[in-house]
């Protein structure tokens, strides 16, 4: 289990996830806050279904689980580009 990767972005193993679930972290958002799982470049596309399955095996069926909170942006953006867009907006006004 220590060589089985659940989150490729942040290198979180199956062992770590099972320990956390046993410790009482029983939602995607809770596990995310401890491990940063789901916060990397794939934004949870790899791990979220695997976590759902682990939680289901621990007695929390998918229908009762709260999915992770998803927020923009979907991929990384340079702050410089956001600043440029804001400047253009000001000019348009």
């Amino acid at each position: 289990m220590e060589n089985t990767i659940i989150c490729r972005c942040s290198d979180v193993t199956l062992l770590r996830v099972r320990q956390l679930i046993a410790d009482g972290y029983t939602s995607m958002d809770e596990i995310k806050r401890i491990t940063r799982l789901g916060m990397g470049s794939c934004q949870g596309k790899t791990c979220s279904l695997l976590i759902m399955r682990e939680l289901a095996a621990a007695g929390f069926p998918p229908a009762t689980q709260t999915p992770q909170t998803t927020r923009p942006p979907a991929v990384g953006v340079k702050l410089e580009l956001i600043a440029k867009e804001a400047e253009n907006n000001e000019k348009q006004r």
Binding site: P72, P73, A74, V75, V77, L81, K84, E85
Partner: peptide
């Protein structure tokens, strides 16, 4: 496309050049 916001606004990124 990067996000859809409450006010119906959509943000997007062209390559890594323009927001």
């Amino acid at each position: 496309a990067l996000g859809i916001y409450e006010d119906g606004m959509v943000t997007a990124l062209y390559k890594e050049e323009e927001y």
